[in-house]
Every structure is written in C-alpha cells, then in structure tokens.
Design a protein around this nucleic acid. Structure first.
Lengths: 194, 194
DNA sequence: TCCGGTAGTCAACCGCCGTTGATCACGGTC
DNA sequence: GACCGTGATCAACGGCGGTTGACTACCGGA
C-alpha cells in the first residue's frame, strides 16, 4: 500500500466510524451507546475506534460537530427567520424509519450525560445561539436562546416523546404556526410587557 | 419491635429511599444513577434498595410517578397563564444546590430511555397538555403542546445545559419575557399568519 | 531481500454495577 | 428461654464496557 493510499484508506475508515457514531448516538444515549457497537457497524475492532479518536468522549464530540454541521444558514431577512427555522425543525419526518436521523436527534439523545452536556452547551452556544442572535432584531443572546429553547422542546416532544398533536397533518399548518411563534419571540418586547 | 412499628419503620425507610431516588434521577440520567449512590444517601445497603423495589427499573418507574405527582394548577384567567407558567418554570433557582429539584427535571433526565419515554408521553399529555389546553383561548391541544415544548426546551437549556444567557440576572426580566412569549403563543393565530 | 512504518487485530485488564443468597440483629410470641 | 418473622447487612458473582499494549499483515522503499 502506497503511503498516499494508506493514509487515504485510514481517512476513509475514520469517516465511516464517524458516520456510524453519529447514527448510534442519534438513536441511543451516550451511555447506552458502546464503542463495540460502533466498531461492529463498520466491521472494525473496538481498539481501533479508540485509537482513531482517543476516547469515547472525543468521538462523541466529533460526532456532534459532524451531525450539526449540515443546516445552519440563516436568511438575511429576519422576517423570514421563523419560516426557515420551522422548516428545518420539521424536516425529518419522511424518512424517519430508514433514513438519516435529524441533526438535532443526537443532541436530544445525549442530554443525560454531563460530559456530553458540556460539549453540547459549548457547541449550541457557539454555533447556533450566537450566530442566531445576530439575525434577530435587537441582537440578543437571550432572545436567541429562547428561540433555541422552543426548537429544542419541539424536537423532544415530536421526535422523542412523539406527541400526537405535534404531528404535521399536512397542509403545513404546524410549520406555519411554528414560524409565526418564532417571529413573535423575535419581536417580543425585551421588557416582557405584552 | 412490635409488628406495627416494624412495618412502620420499613415503610419509612422505603419512602426515604424513594425520595433519594427522585433526587438522584432528577440530577443524573438513569444509566449514570447507581443504586449504590441512592443507598448511600439514605445510609442503607445496596442490597436492601434492590430488595425493596425489585429492580432498578421498578424503582425508577416509581420515582417518576412520585416526582410527577405534584399537582399543577392553572389560573382561571388565561391572561395570567403566561406569568404563572413562567414562575413555575423558573421556580427552582434559589435553592439549586441544596433544595428539591423541579418536578420536570426527572422527565428531562430520563428522555434517553425508550421505556421512560412512553411513560412520560402519557403523563405529559394527560396531566399537562390536556388540562392546559382547556385554559387557552381557542382550546387546542396543539397550542398547549407548543407551550409545553417551549417550557420543556427552556428547562433543558437552563437546567441541563446551563446556558448562561437563560440565567435570571435578578429583577425578573427573564420571567417577564417568558411570560410574555407564552401569552403570545396563546394568542398566536391558528392559521399561522403573523 | 530486508527494513520500517502504518492500518488494523487480539487478548487482557480494571472498575463499575445490578443482582443474589447467605447471614445478622432484634423484638414479639409461645 | 427457645423460636421465628423481619428489617437490614455482607460478600461475592457475572457481565459489560472503556482502555491499554503487544502483536500481525501488508506495502513501499533502499
């Protein structure tokens, strides 16, 4: 194996491990997910997984980063923000059983672990709340955090608890309502006076 | 020890174990919480905890039931709903270190377990969303679910992820803002048009 | 043909945790 | 005082899971 192709091979395997990790961590909690499971998915020994990423925690951190890399573009016009975020939040229903999981699933599944929580906080604040805060009127971390809270709760009630009344019945009514609420949060008076 | 007082003693110990379990499960996930920890809190042997409740899983189930027993009352005037819910949502800061945890914490911590998720959905829908839906204008399960989603997400970002910008800085500004947003959700047009 | 480096494996370690069965301590009963 | 039911303990088992270090297989280069 040439030097180049060896490195290429290693990179490829590493990526496949990372993919498997994202899938696993998205469906089960941090503690429930074993390195042996991930290794088995790829057809590799456990030790190699560990060797590649240093520790389970580091693998998890990287998996979170990868999983959340996809969708994070906010429209320039803040009046469109609600609709864009609502669409992102609901965009995972069709292929729920056999396809990729939603990018927020991994966040939701791994809330339980304090180590995971720390990683998640850093990431959510740095890569979601902060950028988002620059797209709302009256730029405010708190306002962005409240929007994030709404989206996170939505994801949990829908994807984890599977609450019936939050299933989209078709016609986009739910999406429209969510979009509307986000716009309301964006515009809510900072003083709290309604 | 008389038969009666022996039984009384056993019941008391059992209750203390249950209390400790609620506290533990509220702060850490199901997997992270060890029977040994709970036993140590009460000053009892691990084996006795197991003996009392049959298994860790059964203890957890009972702990969830106990933790969620706290009765929830909503104000009659729907204009006060936002403020009341906001107060409940934030009402656990002062005694964060040594006091009781919020009743929803155990819900949040145990989201990862699929068995727990089913129990939780039943409870949340029956004991929170449905009653709440009767207190909003234009009674609607969906609207109540969206409020619940906001509160759940808020709990997670605050209590689990500990996002700084959602910490109350004093003066009740956060509470006021949350109350305001809930009122906005209550009044948000069903069509989604803003 | 031998060397060296690197992808990937193997086997074992170690600590944690739920679970189990034997056992103790003690107070009421006869 | 002997017996016994019961609250509570003790020590150990068995398995799981992350981690570790030695080892193999393979390939390009000298």
């Amino acid at each position: 194996m040439s030097r180049a192709s060896a490195a290429q091979q290693a990179a490829s395997t590493r990526e496949r491990i990372l993919d498997a990790a994202v899938q696993r961590f998205s469906r089960r909690s941090y503690e429930e997910t074993g390195l042996r499971d991930i290794a088995a998915d790829v057809g590799v020994d456990v030790a190699y997984v560990h060797r590649c990423f240093g520790s389970k925690e580091k693998l998890f951190a990287e998996a979170v980063r990868v999983a959340l890399k996809a969708d994070r573009s906010f429209p320039d016009d803040s009046r469109e923000l609600g609709r864009a975020l609502a669409r992102q939040a609901l965009a995972r229903d069709g292929k729920h059983s056999h396809g990729r999981t939603g990018s927020l699933d991994i966040v939701i599944r791994s809330l339980s672990s304090p180590q995971a929580a720390a990683v998640l906080r850093e990431f959510i604040v740095a890569d979601f709340i902060t950028p988002l805060s620059r797209h709302v009127d009256q730029p405010s971390l708190r306002r962005a955090s409240l929007i994030m809270a709404f989206l996170a709760g939505l994801g949990i009630l829908r994807n984890v608890l599977d609450v019936a009344s939050l299933r989209e019945a078709g016609g986009g009514e739910l999406e429209a309502m969510i979009a509307c609420i986000i716009q309301l949060i964006i515009a809510a008076p900072a003083s709290g006076r309604a």
